[in-house]
Amino acid sequence: MTKVAIITRTKNRPILLPRVRASVENQTFRDFVWVLVNDAGERGEVDRQADIARTNGVDVVVVHRDKSVGMEAASNDGMKKSSSEYAVIHDDDDTWQPDFLKQTVDYLDENISNVGVVTHSIRIDEEITDNHVKITGKSSFNGQLNSIKLSDLSFHNNFPPISFLFRRSCYDAVNGFDETLPVLGDWDFNLRTLLEGDIGLIPEALANYHFRISNVKASDSYGNTVTAGIDKHIQYEAIYRNRKLRNDINTNSLGLGFVLHQAYVAGPRHQSYVSLLIQKILKKIGLFEFVKRLLS
């Protein structure tokens, strides 16, 4: 058994594979296995990158799936093919800072009651042209995050998979990822994990969340699900919230559905309250009209 299982889901993204391999290889913490799950895509580059990683001293397990049935099924397959104390989903388009594993593993070793730990993330905008990745911008993705609260997470998913190291025992307790969800599976997993116990936070940007805004076609293998699949995200957010609330109503219980409903109702009201409060402050100090003209 290794300390950490790093699960990477990939399908026909050969341009990005060397970068994810480098992200894994550059970790200062080395007690891990890299599980590379090829979700029914071309095999050649996957095997080549795995061989390079092995040459560089990385323990690699390659899983070639014959049929693609979704990201969550690929994640579960990777977990089944490994044995570890902790686990993390390192998608093939995201990256880490070299100390990500060291700091997150140290945190969970020291905070044994926490089911997982999250770090801050940097959003990296990029585009792919002529088989090359060009970075077009960087910004904080969730630098304002100071704790992981069920109320906040029920309103929207405020951290990406690349930033979340979790205990395998918790993964087993929640029965893994929901394979019926074509999108939002990470959000659902995060919520169910948080119901098992607290998730800690390291307020340092140790993870990089990459976006390719220019690759917005759903048919483009390099598109992000949060951009290329935005319509599906909107559709399944409603389906997911309705499913959970319907279950609470049918079972006459207060569960995750009620929490999701309350967060959704309170969220816009809270935002409106904050907006009105800012307007009052600006008006009081005489800057409201100036800021209004500036923004317009």
Results as ranks from 00 to 15, higher is better:
2 T>D: 15
3 K>G: 08
5 A>C: 06
9 R>I: 11
9 R>S: 14
14 P>T: 09
14 P>A: 05
19 R>W: 02
23 S>M: 10
32 F>D: 03
38 N>V: 01
39 D>F: 09
40 A>E: 02
40 A>W: 02
40 A>F: 04
42 E>L: 13
43 R>Y: 14
44 G>E: 13
47 D>Y: 11
52 I>M: 03
57 G>R: 04
61 V>E: 10
64 H>Y: 05
68 S>H: 08
73 A>I: 05
78 G>H: 09
82 S>D: 06
82 S>H: 07
90 H>K: 10
91 D>I: 08
91 D>T: 12
92 D>V: 04
93 D>K: 04
93 D>F: 01
93 D>G: 05
93 D>R: 00
103 Q>I: 09
104 T>P: 03
104 T>R: 02
105 V>A: 02
107 Y>M: 02
109 D>V: 00
109 D>R: 04
111 N>C: 00
112 I>K: 15
114 N>H: 15
115 V>L: 00
116 G>Y: 03
117 V>C: 04
119 T>V: 11
121 S>P: 02
122 I>W: 09
124 I>G: 03
127 E>C: 09
127 E>K: 10
127 E>M: 10
129 T>C: 11
130 D>W: 00
133 V>K: 03
138 K>V: 14
140 S>E: 08
144 Q>F: 07
144 Q>S: 12
145 L>T: 00
145 L>E: 00
151 S>W: 08
156 H>Q: 10
156 H>F: 06
161 P>A: 10
161 P>D: 06
161 P>E: 05
162 I>K: 00
165 L>K: 00
167 R>T: 05
169 S>F: 06
169 S>Q: 08
177 F>L: 09
178 D>H: 05
178 D>S: 00
182 P>C: 03
185 G>N: 01
194 L>Q: 08
197 G>N: 04
198 D>R: 07
206 L>I: 05
209 Y>W: 15
212 R>Q: 09
213 I>F: 12
216 V>H: 15
217 K>C: 11
224 N>K: 06
225 T>K: 10
226 V>Y: 13
230 I>C: 04
236 Y>V: 09
236 Y>H: 14
236 Y>R: 13
239 I>P: 10
240 Y>R: 06
241 R>H: 04
241 R>L: 09
246 R>K: 14
247 N>K: 13
248 D>F: 12
255 G>H: 03
257 G>C: 07
260 L>A: 00
267 G>K: 05
270 H>P: 02
270 H>C: 08
273 Y>S: 13
273 Y>L: 15
277 L>Y: 12
279 Q>M: 12
283 K>H: 11
286 G>Y: 04
287 L>T: 07
289 E>K: 06
290 F>G: 12
295 L>M: 14
295 L>R: 15
